[in-house]
Design a protein around this nucleic acid. Structure first.
Lengths: 152, 152
DNA sequence: CTATGTGCAAAGATTTTGCCCATAT
DNA sequence: ATATGGGCAAAATCTTTGCACATAG
């Protein structure tokens, strides 16, 4: 295809190799409108690359995500977090240390707007999560001169 | 212990028992401003109830969440999902079948607003996720007469 | 040629579940 | 008394990692 010309260039530019596995993973992900999990993606990719391993898919997804070629929903969440405050508010997650804080800002329900678009759905709520670097991690980064490449 | 009067009543009203484990889990969660994972919560709760088991904490969290006493961040995410579309858009997740669709609606960056509030943080982005019931699950629910109690 | 990536398999981490006993109601 | 919940431990998932070999550049 031709939509990987830029991809190959940028992967190379980032000091990474453009392998068939990576190209196919991205092609397959881009070809579906569902939002597959890594396991689902592994099954899909395996049809084209029977020998690929799950570990490669996970590693590839991480690489492509860091390069900005895809986004991970539920970003950074290896485990669910809980909040006894059920009032309408947002959260911030630190990309580096994974800490989660409250944001005293209503989710500003655009529920009606979404409901109008999502014909046939019954929308019950929404969640808004910001992400970035927390004060502590900003300090730590500046002191140790890290550039924030791969996150935590 | 009088701050659980309403809790006990409502848990009872939902046909559920008010046990010490459940009360302590909620009290501990409500007493911290962090947003602990189930494992972290288990450690905290264990200081007060040395005999509690992880399974109980997980089950309790699910019950309390269904009763609306707490919210789960990264809700319903047992596995990460990926999206090759990195443009600014939102997602909807079905509470019942876990399917995730795109919502052609910009996240409407209130990033500046959040950045103003979150002094010291460096906000990089945000994520907006709606949730509810998808058309298929609404149909299935009506046909089988389910009341949507515990979700899928 | 050499740094990087892959396959494989084992290890980690998180969450769920079955079974039997305990207990709230 | 009895339905519901808890403890325990095994299992099911999901994800990461070390190592030896393969390969893109």
């Amino acid at each position: 295809m031709d939509n990987d010309s830029g991809l190959a260039r940028r992967i190379h530019g980032a000091g990474r190799r453009m392998t068939e596995q990576r190209r196919v993973v991205l092609e397959v992900l881009a070809s579906v409108k569902s939002h597959p999990t890594a396991a689902e993606l592994y099954d899909m990719v395996r049809r084209r690359l029977p020998g690929i391993s799950p570990g490669t898919v996970y590693r590839t997804l991480k690489v492509l995500k860091n390069l900005g070629y895809l986004q991970e929903l539920d970003f950074g969440a290896t485990a669910s977090r809980f909040d006894a405050d059920v009032a309408d508010h947002c959260h911030v997650r630190c990309d580096s240390c994974d800490r989660v804080d409250d944001v005293p800002l209503a989710a500003n329900p655009r529920l009606e707007e979404a409901q109008r678009i999502l014909d046939g759905w019954k929308i019950e709520g929404q969640r808004v999560e910001f992400h970035g670097l927390c004060p502590e991690c900003i300090g730590a980064e500046q002191q140790s001169g890290q550039k924030g490449g791969d996150g935590a």
